Amino acid sequence: MNEQELRDALRSEMAGATPPPPLSTGVTLGVARRVRLRRRAMWASLGSAAVVLAVAGFAAVGTPGDGVYEPAGHGPPTTSQESAETKEAWPTGPDGRPQEDRTARAGSRYDQGSRLLDEVVSVVPAGHTAPDDPANQPADQRTLRTHEAQFEAKVNGVDLWSYLSSVAVAKGKGTGRVLVEVHDAGNQLPTEPCALARSFWGMRGRCQVETVGAAQVGVVVEPSGDDRLDQWSAYRHPDGVVVFVAQGARFDENGPGLTKLPFSEQELAALAVDERFHLR
């Protein structure tokens, strides 16, 4: 672990204890980088509330607990130090060359992330809308819909990926958000439903197990010490694919939030099992 990752780990500990790291060094680094991407994206839009921290070329982070989240998009560029840590080239892109960093910008993996976004939009409940981004949107305005496909690690010679899509959900004058994150089979995330749910972005909270048919789904119904999201569910399919579905009453700190979350706890659990999010 380098100095930057140590700082990220300490920040994560301040927001809430993280689950035990996987045994694989490559997967451990992948998880740490994923958390770094999520937190950097969340804090990057805090404006005047942000605290600029110039460390190893990264800047613009804010204090934990501000409750603002924005998916990471294309993520930070790969540094020579990070490339040395992987000790192998990034996955090959559709042009036959290694990717520039962890995020796919074209090809089948990118298409999977785009497909996931369409599926998230399709489950927005009746009475709510999923507004799209306007044409010629200002660069400093938060995107209402976004998706990414990110290389996590190579385990037993197999590339493992995660996919994240986030959608703004509006009703009346309020806007919240719904997001889905999917991890390839072969991931080393926990198996027990609530342990799996509490592994999501290192967040903790009061968890209960919901039964959906024959499936057992962990649902965090009340987060503790972290207000980025209000509720989330987690399910591991029999083939090992993991799905997280999360919802928040507020899309950002600038506008009014929803008066009620889009989904009930049981509905949130059912979405984690939904085959539409079972990417293969």
Rank of each mutant, 00 (worst) to 15 (best):
G225H: 09
D133L: 03
A269D: 06
V61S: 08
R109L: 00
V31M: 13
V243E: 02
L271D: 00
A15T: 12
A72Q: 09
P20V: 12
D133P: 02
S224N: 07
V61K: 06
R142G: 03
P76Q: 03
P19W: 11
V243I: 09
S233H: 09
G107N: 13
S48I: 11
G113T: 01
M203Y: 06
G107C: 11
T28K: 13
V27D: 02
P134V: 09
Y163P: 02
P20G: 10
G172D: 10
V124I: 15
A272E: 01
E181G: 02
A168G: 05
A41K: 03
G65I: 03
A32L: 14
L116M: 06
R11W: 11
P77L: 13
V242N: 06
G202K: 09
T191C: 03
V55D: 12
Q216N: 08
P131C: 04
L279S: 02
S114R: 14
E222G: 01
L53A: 06
E192K: 13
L46H: 05
G75H: 08
V27F: 14
R34P: 01
S162W: 11
D8K: 04
E181D: 08
V219Y: 04
R40Q: 09
R11N: 08
Y110F: 15
S24K: 08
G62Y: 08
D118S: 12
E70C: 03
G213C: 07
L10V: 12
A170Y: 07
L271M: 06
A130P: 06
V31D: 14
N254W: 15
V242C: 05
Y235Q: 01
V27K: 02
D66E: 14
P22F: 04
R105H: 05
L196C: 00
P21V: 07
V158Q: 14
V52A: 13
T146M: 13
H183M: 05
G257L: 11
A15F: 12
K154T: 15
C194A: 05
A195R: 12
V121T: 05
A215C: 02
L164V: 04
A272V: 03
P71D: 00
A59V: 13
V273Y: 06
T63A: 13
Q137T: 08
S199N: 15
R206F: 00
W161N: 01
S83T: 06
L53N: 03
S48P: 07
P134K: 11
T211D: 08
F58W: 08
A130E: 04
G73Y: 08
D274Y: 07
A185E: 09
P138Y: 05
A49T: 08
V241N: 07
E70R: 13
V124Y: 10
G107M: 11
V243C: 03
G26Y: 01
